[in-house]
Structure formats: structure tokens, C-alpha cells
Design a protein around this nucleic acid. Sequence first.
DNA 1: CGGTATTTTGAGCAGTGTCAAAGACGGTGG
DNA 2: CCACCGTCTTTGACACTGCTCAAAATACCG
Lengths: 237, 237
Amino acid sequence: MLNILSSFVAQLSTYGPLNEGDTAAVCALPVTVQTYVSDTHVVRQGDLGRSFLVLKEGFAIREKLTGDGARQFLSLDIPGDPLNLPALFLSIADHGVIALANAKIAFIPRQPVLDLVTVSSSIKHAFLKLALTDGSIAREKQLNLGRRNARVRVAHFLCEHVARMEARGLLSGNAFRLPLTQEQVGDATGLTSVHVNRMLGKLAAENLIIQNGRSIIIPSITALREAGDFNTQYLFI
Amino acid sequence: MLNILSSFVAQLSTYGPLNEGDTAAVCALPVTVQTYVSDTHVVRQGDLGRSFLVLKEGFAIREKLTGDGARQFLSLDIPGDPLNLPALFLSIADHGVIALANAKIAFIPRQPVLDLVTVSSSIKHAFLKLALTDGSIAREKQLNLGRRNARVRVAHFLCEHVARMEARGLLSGNAFRLPLTQEQVGDATGLTSVHVNRMLGKLAAENLIIQNGRSIIIPSITALREAGDFNTQYLFI
DNA sequence: CGGTATTTTGAGCAGTGTCAAAGACGGTGG
DNA sequence: CCACCGTCTTTGACACTGCTCAAAATACCG
């Protein structure tokens, strides 16, 4: 229960029934946990997938870079999220991973995970659904980046983070603390920090959010979701 | 060999070794083929995944819509591509599918596919890699839409289509015919048709492409790839 | 050959980016 | 506990990319 990987197992089991043997096998995987102090690159685009990474505490970010160094954040990951599933099975990481301050990441050597997936069909099935869900989220972001304006994009970003946190039981009430700077929100939404600042101000002026530093209160999640053209369906939670 | 699903099997086997039994089992799946005349919605966002769809001939598009009806194309699919893997395993389609003129799509009832995946571990493994690769491509598009300007985006789009066609052996030489209107290229790149037109004109003026209607010649793929900040790595071909 | 869809072009505009500076905040050492 | 320093947020002025609207030119299809 209090295993290092319990939150990951819990999430995995939402994708397909795991029997006790499966659960035990996952929890028995050899694990090392690493804690990070400030924003740190854990994996760089192109690295070999030597270990499977699962976020245990705090937050992490997956990112890609353009040739001239512009950053695009692909996801803001929360406890229980796998951080490099593609690298595990495709050998090479198509994206980088950044640990935010105080994040704890579990490292599991690659081979034991591959072995486990080979042995247990239901675990492999859960991994497949995990990959497909991750793809669904990426596609929603294509839509967000390609066809929604700045205000809607920022609102959508907030809605998604809150919805995912809530689904994991990591959020209570309508208040939370954003773990990112506005510059980083810009990297997630394809905007500049200046414009993110203005859009947050606009959402606040419309009473869709109440800001106090990085603490955010959402007076009406329904209203914010409408502003962000947000629907939980694509998250499959 | 000349089975309806042979191109799909060929692609699947690039993701993981399939023995003869696996190959035969896939080819033995019950299939109906449907031909489309002009751009037609085959699946709509939110539909139930009753059949597994594989593109056999021509082109198809996967799309998502915003609440106010703006379109974002997620991918331009080519023969051999599965069109609704997520819907198959997650029950509900997170995106729509459009068949372009003269496309032939193979419909395979859902249950036989699920059964096959349950029985064959190597086929499930191939599906997993397929899903992860699809995710990798979606992430590159997040980068493209979020952080690259219009000219680079259009060049990147062309490079990706050409690279994927080539990898399937569907292209010879440096000429091809774009199966999309400029409006549709805009839906794929998050631009308007007018701006796509200008960017294509710009690429032509720079001798990166030679246009004649929808026929495009690429004098130097190296040069176009540089202009499009394109590298095949994320395609895992 | 006519009608429709698509491409091309132009002019003006809106949304977002850039640059720069001031203000607020938070953590650290004294 | 306070002062300081670096980071982050906020604001303003202006530039530029890409959008809108509209019309003309061209290509495609029956």
C-alpha cells in the first residue's frame, strides 16, 4: 500500500483490471528514488531510455525544443504519471523531462519493466491504454495550440491541470497553487510570459479566477471550463 | 501477400517481430472495405469505436473541432495507417476521421481485433509501439504548432508527409502530389488558407519547392528539411 | 462550355510578440 | 527580525506576424 510505486499502480489499474499478482509484481520492481532541488533536466531529447521514470511527488514537465532553442512544454505531470513511456519501448526519448523543485522521481531499470510487460498481459494492456490516453491528451493540445486564442488556451491549461489533479485526489476544494512561473505557462501554451500575464489578468478581471501570487481560486469551475472550451472527455479519467 | 490488410501488417511488423501465425491471424480478420467519393466523415469525435479502421488506399485525415467549430487536423494518414486505435481500446473516439476522395478504408469489427490482441502478445506489443509512435508524432506537432512560425510549419508539414510516404514505399523521386487544398493544409498547420498560400509562395520563391498546381517538386530535400526544422527521428521509421 | 471550388493578390486590422523598466515577492545571510 | 538580492510579475509602447474581408484569376468537373 505504502509502496513507492503505489500511486502509479493505482493509476495503471484504472486502465485495466490488475490482479493481485500484477500489482505485487509492479510494486516489487527495483526502484531508486531521486529528489530534485530546482528545475533540473532529468532526461534530454534523444537520450536512451535506460530507466523507466515515474513521478512520485511534486511536478515534472515534458518538453521538446526547436532547432533554434525555443521550448514547448508537452505536459505538466503530476504524481503517478509515467514520464518516459515512449523512451522505454522505442529506446530513444523523443522528448526531455524536467523535474521541478522538490519533485521525487522513481527510477526503475528498463529491463525488469520490459520483462514484466512480457509476462503479464494485463499490465501490457494497461500500458497500451496509458499510451493511447497520453496520445489523446497530446491531440487535444494540438487543437489548443493550433486553433484556440490566447485567453482560451490559458483557461484550458488551468482546467486540465485541475481536472487531472482532482482525478488523482490531489486537490480539494476550488483552490490550488500553480507550480509554474508565467514564463513556463507560456511554454506550455505556446505564448510569451508577457502575454500569459495579460491573459491571467483578463481571466481575473472576468472573475473566472482569483489570483494571489501563484495561488489560484476558481469561483466557478463551470464558468472557467466554458471559457477554456474544456471538456474532460479527452482525459479518459 | 495480396491480402487487404497486407500494408497494415507490413507496417505493424516494423514495430515488433510477428511470426507467421501472427501475420496470418491479422490477415484472417473479417474485413469490409468501403470506398469514398469525396471528403466524407467516417467517424465523428465522440463516436463509439465499433470497428477498427485501416486506410488501404488514398488518404484520410484525423481531426478535432473546437466548441465554436474551428478545425484542427491531427494527421494526414496514408495507406497502412490505422485510423482509430484510441477508439478501439478506449471505446470512444477522441477525434474524427475524414476520408478524402477515392480513399479505401478497411473496417474490421472491434471484437475480433480485441480478441487477437488478447491472444497474441507480440501483436499487442506492436500495437503498443504503434500507439507510442503516434504519440511521438503528436508531440512533434505540439512543438510545431506552439513554437514555429508559419513558414517553418508549412515546410515541416511537407517534410513529414514526404518522409512518411517514402518510408512506406509510396513515393519515388522528389515529386509528389499534395492531396489537400490549401485550406486543408491550413487546418493541418493552424493557419488560414490565405497565409498557407503566401508561405507556399515564399518557399517557392526560395527555391525550396517547385509548385505546379498541387504537384510539388522538392529540388533539395536537405534544404527543405532545414527550412522546416525537420528531422525524421520522432517518426521512428 | 458553364459553374463551382480553389488559388492568388491586395489592403487594412487584430492579436500576440518584443523590448524595457518598474514593482512585488521570496529566500538568504547577517 | 531585517536588509538585501535575485527572480518573477506587471505595465507600457511599439513592431510584426498572421487574420479578415474582398475580389480577381485560375483550375477543375460534369
